[in-house]
Design a protein around this nucleic acid. Structure first.
Lengths: 219, 219
DNA sequence: AGCGGGCTTTGATTCTGATCAACGCCCCCG
DNA sequence: CGGGGGCGTTGATCAGAATCAAAGCCCGCT
């Protein structure tokens, strides 16, 4: 567990006393945007989507949470976004009060969480670039490379990238429609950059050409 | 100065010893994306733009810094984005080393900076929604309301909103072209929601209808 | 006062991605 | 075994933003 890696054994013991487990079914929500923030969570298994909603129902997914990621650290009085399970997921949860106490007591824990918040901010800014300035194929290509890198960071193979989320989720993450996402996958497949054994897994055939499509390298 | 508001008088004194001033002309850069991060800054006067660039020259402005805002807090070894002055600006600067020391010594300073980082993250996520899911008029309308609110937060009038940045900057912030930004301003003017005494100041005539256009209220 | 350049606005056209629509596939369930 | 629904793909059309182009405006400068 990521949270523990910053702690000594005795610290871990105390942390565990303050902690409780949650199990979450697919497509159920853990917290809703606007709810009072009472607990913070860390994902131990599965995948969550974080999203903001507009009054008329439009949705923007701001990110996907993978094991070791935190939820609720950047919010203040109320949660700023909704968190739902993409697949069955497990989480550890702490009351905000306990977590504050723990962070005060264990500077290394606090530092680690702050590092993660800072990384999340840098990530959010990268995403701003993707949303604001990339064409659809570039968006999808960089999404695939990003998911591939994250998988690799968890020691999983970087090539058959599992995409447990739906096309709707991907569209709402990239600021596209599902049709455009689907067509873009097809196009990348036709160009021989990826293979699509099934809709929820993508095999990256030509990573460097995919990086070119992503607009991250000069042509 | 915002940084000082979290400190006692004697703390302020120490802070000031570690600090140095920088003055920045319009359209000059303070730090460049990719440079080693040696100093952190706080803006005391003026306006900065933060941006990311693609190898082919496309640019995404991730935000505008106003007095009291910080620069370089979320980065690690290298700066993740470029910061340039929109208008002549003044900043206080600290070496990363000094700032780390100060944050360690003065928990209230550290907490305040972390709060600002968290707020920046929430802000970046709002911006993701704006970039990914809003139509051009909605983008421009919410940008105007946002600038108006920020002005109000600094005790300035909320209505003639000063927009010192160029149309290009606004376009690169909202993920649009300058033509679309310009046309959208004209449209909002025609609809009687705003007045444009000159290109760099916007008078908000009908705030509530502007909020409707921004997509933030149900029609 | 006249000139030049940067920024903004406006107009005409193009083109891409959204929308509308239909179909296929798969899985669950009766 | 047959039906139905969710999800994904594909196709046709449309709308709107990007692009291409030109002109206006406001400065500072000579």
């Amino acid at each position: 567990m990521a949270v523990c890696s910053a702690l000594q054994d005795d610290e871990v013991a105390e942390l565990e006393r303050a902690m409780s487990f949650v199990r979450l079914e697919s497509n159920t929500s853990l917290v809703e945007e606007g709810e009072p923030r009472r607990r913070v969570y860390t994902l131990t298994s599965g995948l969550l989507r974080l999203s903001l909603a507009l009054p008329d129902g439009r949705r923007q997914i701001t990110g996907f949470l993978m094991p070791g990621d935190y939820l609720g650290l950047a919010d203040d009085e109320i949660y700023a976004q909704t968190a739902e399970a993409v697949v069955p997921s497990g989480l550890c949860s702490f009351s905000v009060r306990d977590m504050d106490r723990l962070m005060e007591r264990y500077p290394r824990l606090r530092d680690r969480l702050h590092l993660m918040t800072r990384a999340a901010l840098r990530q959010a800014r990268e995403t701003q670039m993707i949303l604001g300035r990339l064409a659809p194929s570039e968006k999808v290509a960089s999404f695939l490379l990003h998911m591939s890198n994250r998988a690799a960071a968890y020691g999983r193979p970087e090539s058959p990238v599992p995409l447990p989320m739906t096309r709707t989720d991907i569209a709402d993450y990239l600021g596209l429609t599902i049709e455009t996402v689907s067509r873009t996958f097809t196009k990348l497949k036709t160009q021989g950059l990826i293979r699509l054994p099934d809709p929820h897994s993508v095999e990256i055939v030509d990573k460097s050409r995919l990086a070119v499509v992503a607009g991250l390298t000069v042509h």
